Simulated scan of single mutants.
Amino acid sequence: MRSTFLLTAGLMLAPAIATAQTTAPAAPATAPQTAPATGATTAPVGTPQTGPGTTAPATTAAAPVGTGTIVQALPSIPAHATLVRLLTAAKLDAQLGGAGPFTLFAPNDEAFSRLPAGTLDTLLAPANVASLTTILKNHVVPGALTSDQIKSQITAGGGRATLTTLSGQPLVATIDNGSILLTDAVGNKSYVDKPADVREANGVIHSTNGISLPKLG
């Protein structure tokens, strides 16, 4: 029953995901600026600036670490209400509210809005909780990984880093146009679309513009 639903869900989800979430975030601004603009630096996060007029290496200040959990923080992040609803339905909010640490790649509401009509209702049906849980776990990686740390792993891996999710399946992280690109086990792609890490006591949240599926069937 579960494998049949997973295969059916995959057939419903994959076409929308494959065609609608591969747009990279806007490229960083390259024109001179009188003051730093949030999310518009011209060098990767943490890269020293060595241009004229620089008196000291410039780095992006680390985001402050919150005192709550990633589950408690998620509702306060704009455009993630659908993911909050799904995590609650799958009862993953209890696990992700634990000690962790975890890294959550959090699809935004727009990513879910592109799914075929009726898909969310199907996933939320009580009989499909186990399958929904598997799909959601494919967005969670053990350990608290900041963007800088993921980029360091990508560099160390010769341009790619394989992150094993709680579903047991991989997400492959690469860099595209300065942004972190995630490719799931069936070839769907999504981008980390926010430059700042949301850091909490038990992990890190990265907003993404697409859904990452496990291999189904």
Rank of each mutant, 00 (worst) to 15 (best):
S3I: 08
F5K: 00
L6H: 00
A9T: 02
L11R: 12
A18T: 05
A20I: 00
A20L: 07
A26I: 06
T30H: 06
A35C: 05
G39K: 03
G39W: 08
G39Q: 07
T42P: 00
G46D: 10
T47K: 01
T50P: 02
T50W: 05
G51H: 09
A56Y: 13
A56V: 14
A61T: 15
V65C: 14
G66F: 13
T69Y: 10
V71L: 11
L74S: 10
S76A: 15
P78V: 12
A79L: 10
T82C: 12
R85E: 15
R85V: 13
L92S: 09
A94E: 15
A94T: 15
Q95V: 15
Q95H: 06
G100E: 14
F105K: 01
D109S: 07
A111N: 05
T119C: 03
L123N: 05
S131A: 15
S131P: 06
L132P: 09
I135C: 06
L136E: 12
H139Y: 12
V141Y: 10
T146P: 04
D148E: 12
K151M: 14
Q153R: 15
I154L: 09
T155V: 13
T155Y: 03
A156M: 06
G159K: 03
T165C: 07
Q169G: 02
Q169S: 04
A173L: 08
S179K: 03
L181S: 10
A185N: 06
G187Y: 05
K189Q: 13
D193S: 14
D193H: 01
K194F: 11
K194G: 08
P195L: 11
D197L: 05
R199S: 13
H206A: 06
L213Y: 06
P214N: 04
